[in-house]
Nucleic acid binder design. Structure first.
Length: 446
DNA sequence: TGAAATGTTGGGGCG
DNA sequence: ACGCCCCAACATTTC
């Protein structure tokens, strides 16, 4: 009897899961395992919102696995130690997992692979969290693309991997299953949150996909920039934790586009957003140093003002600029922020408050339910003008005209800053016209 | 996936 | 009818 482990990480689903499907096809029994990693859980950039959301996804995954005939094993502890114990407890001869492109994960996975092989266990990793991997999209000279548009052209030319069916588990008699912890509570992991989370788990993700593909996707390009509307996909937390696969998303929206010619342009813009997500994953894989420095190294020693009081005002949504404050309050109270507003608040922090993009990046990571190193870092470096294919440093949003353009009736602002047009609302903490010139001067020294 | 500064044009008021 | 000025509207340049 061939027993395999499937190591769940950011692929918390049973449908269209590459490594899991492979394991089920190649082994007589597959034992699914999730290991809580204290290194990740105690990292300063890990926040309660995403951990809370992940726990709900895991609870849902556990049920789904049970319904599919299996049993999900939970462990907590040093990954190498726990993996080694689980392998010994099960007599598994193969380990399957989906690849992760973050610097920490790559190191961790290389260690685990070496350990498994030393125990005589085959290791199979698979492409899963992206449609196309870093090695698959390089220029003719073998170097990575640094500009989005040619990258996206190459991305679209590649054949798409198939969408895989839901798996079933088998638990033959004699199967040695390892001990499992009960799913821990958020508090047991050292976190707490008051957030009301969006529906979590694979079924919720697929419901949202169906709703989007036949609804907002048809008007995506036209409506996506209006934060008062529900006109974006809101897939980000699902894509982050893998309750939804990018292949499944792509197949669904493309099926709609084929049957609905007028919607084609609208949906193309959405597909580009999926490609942006992969672009930043590839950038992180090729240039892991972007995780803690500017892609353009000449900006690493910019003299940011980094004023603690201004930063606190930004975090708490009391800058006196209604669109900025609305965005930050949406983040703080829901764990999510509309992308247009993410760009506005990011530009405001860096170019109006002259605070380093890294302070904002960290704050977002701690507050977002979709906290994702590659996308978040890419977005921040784009806004700050320090990244690859970033917006030029002089392209500075005016928070007032952005609000007029994208929230013309003030509906979004009012929903998070009800006091915006009363005397209770504070005066702007800085003058945009003045700060803009300071930011230009700061960057011009480079 | 900008916005401000600067330049140009042309209509209209007025003497 | 003409020159002059103002300035809105639009275009281009600059950051």
């Amino acid at each position: 009897m061939k027993v395999a482990l499937h190591w769940f990480r950011c692929d918390l689903r049973l449908s269209d899961n590459t490594a899991l499907s492979l394991a089920v096809a190649q082994a007589d029994a597959v034992i699914p395992v999730f290991i809580f990693d204290p290194v990740v859980l105690t990292a300063p950039e890990t926040g309660a919102p995403i951990v809370a959301f992940m726990l709900e996804c895991l609870a849902s995954l556990e049920k789904n696995i049970e319904a599919a005939g299996g049993r999900l094993i939970f462990r907590y502890g040093d990954i190498e130690t726990e993996m080694s114990k689980v392998l010994r407890e099960t007599d598994a001869t193969a380990l399957y997992y989906n690849r992760d492109y973050e610097p920490y994960a790559r190191k961790r996975d290389a260690t685990v692979e070496k350990l498994a092989r030393s125990l005589g266990v085959e290791v199979h990793s698979a492409k899963d969290g992206v449609v196309h991997e870093p090695e698959e999209i390089v220029k003719a000279d073998g170097k990575p693309y640094l500009v989005f548009t040619p990258f996206s052209r190459a991305w679209k030319l590649l054949p798409k991997p198939p969408v895989l069916p839901v798996v079933k588990f088998r638990r033959p008699s004699g199967l040695k299953e390892p001990k499992s912890l009960p799913l821990p509570t958020l508090e047991a992991l050292g976190f707490s949150t008051e957030l009301t989370l969006p529906p979590a788990g694979e079924k919720a993700a697929r419901d949202r996909l169906r709703q989007f593909a036949f609804g907002a996707a048809l008007r995506y390009a036209s409506r996506r920039n209006f934060p008062a509307e529900d006109s974006t996909s809101r897939f980000s937390p699902h894509l982050r934790l893998g309750t939804l696969s990018p292949r499944t998303v792509l197949a669904s929206v493309e099926a709609v586009a084929r049957q609905n010619l007028p919607a084609r342009k609208e949906i193309e813009t959405f597909v580009n957003e999926l490609i942006w997500r992969e672009f930043y994953r590839h950038i992180l894989w090729h240039f892991p140093q972007v995780a803690d420095s500017c892609f353009k190294p000449q900006y690493n020693d910019l003299k940011w003002e980094n004023d603690d009081r201004r930063f606190a005002a930004w975090c708490e949504g009391r800058t006196g600029y209604p669109i900025v404050d609305a965005g930050m309050r949406q983040l703080n109270t829901t764990g999510w922020m509309h992308n247009r507003v993410r760009m506005i608040v990011a530009t405001f922090l860096t170019k109006d408050l002259l605070v380093s993009w890294q302070w904002g990046e960290r704050y977002f990571m701690r507050k977002l339910i979709d906290a994702d190193l590659a996308s978040n870092n890419g977005g921040w470096q784009w806004s700050a003008g320090t990244g690859t294919d970033a917006q030029p440093y002089f392209r500075i949003f005016n928070p007032t005209s952005q609000a007029l353009k994208f929230d013309p009736e003030g509906r979004y602002i009012r929903s998070y800053v009800p006091e915006a047009d009363t005397l209770a609302y504070p005066a702007p903490i800085v003058d945009h016209a003045v700060q803009r010139l300071k930011a230009l001067a700061l960057f011009k020294t480079k």
